[in-house]
Simulated assay, not measured.
Amino acid sequence: MVRKVFAVDIHAEGIARYRAWHAAGAPPPAVTAAIRADDIRDLEIYLVGDRMVLIMDQGDRFDPVAKAARDADNPDVQAWDALMRTFQKPLPFGPEGSTWLEMERIYSLTEQP
């Protein structure tokens, strides 16, 4: 299993609506199914202030290129992504048009003597 961590900012005025869209059972079932079908074992989003962090555990079958292609062909995923982008604010150091940026792990307790 591989864990990836991503960050993005959110427009402060949209936090309540973003939370509501991510409540249990609120995301469209097709979006949740697409995530699971790509061997994403767990996905959590955390919020502090106007910064969000996403933690994603990927199984051995996860293929980011294949996932991107499937997502591009899935109208439900495309609609969800377009809606979520209205809440997200790119990090100031990210490339133009970016949302979630992958974070670099710099410490692991399991690697310590």
Rank of each mutant, 00 (worst) to 15 (best):
A66W: 03
H11W: 10
D71H: 08
A66H: 09
I55M: 06
E102I: 10
R61M: 08
E44P: 05
M52Q: 11
N74V: 02
S98Y: 04
V77M: 02
P64R: 10
N74Y: 02
G94L: 01
V65G: 09
T32K: 02
D76F: 02
G97F: 07
D39C: 09
V5C: 08
I40R: 03
L101Y: 06
F87T: 07
A37R: 15
N74D: 15
P90Y: 00
T110I: 09
R70P: 01
V2D: 06
D76N: 10
A37Q: 15
L101K: 07
D81T: 11
H22N: 12
G94R: 00
F62G: 01
V77K: 00
D38M: 01
M52T: 08
R17L: 05
A79T: 13
D50L: 10
P27A: 04
V53Q: 03
A26D: 06
A16Y: 03
A66Q: 15
A69T: 15
D63P: 05
L54A: 12
E44T: 15
Y18A: 03
D42A: 15
P113H: 09
E13M: 09
A23L: 09
V31N: 03
V2H: 09
T86H: 07
W80E: 02
R51H: 12
P113M: 14
V8F: 00
H11G: 10
M52D: 00
V48I: 13
D71T: 03
D76M: 01
W80S: 07
M1V: 14
G49L: 06
V48S: 15
A82C: 11
D81L: 01
E96Y: 07
R17T: 12
L54K: 06
M103A: 15
A30G: 08
V53A: 06
P92K: 04
T99A: 14
A79Y: 04
F62Q: 01
M56W: 12
V65I: 14
L101H: 06
P28A: 15
K67V: 00
A68L: 10
D38E: 06
G49D: 08
R61A: 15
A26H: 03
P95I: 06
R51Y: 07
V31I: 13
F6W: 14
V5W: 08
V65K: 14
Y46L: 07
W80D: 04
A23T: 11
G14R: 01
G97R: 06
L83Y: 00
D71F: 05
S108V: 04
T32I: 14
G59R: 02
P29R: 14
E111D: 15
A30V: 07
A34G: 03
A82D: 13
V8I: 07
T99V: 11
A16N: 06
G94N: 03
L54V: 08
A66I: 05
L101S: 13
T99E: 10
P75D: 02
I55A: 03
T99I: 09
A7N: 04
G14V: 02
P95A: 14
K4D: 03
G97L: 04
A79K: 08
F93R: 11
A66T: 13
R70N: 12
A82H: 09
L83T: 13
I45P: 00
D71G: 00
P64A: 11
E104Q: 10
L101A: 12
Q58V: 12
Q78E: 10
L54T: 06
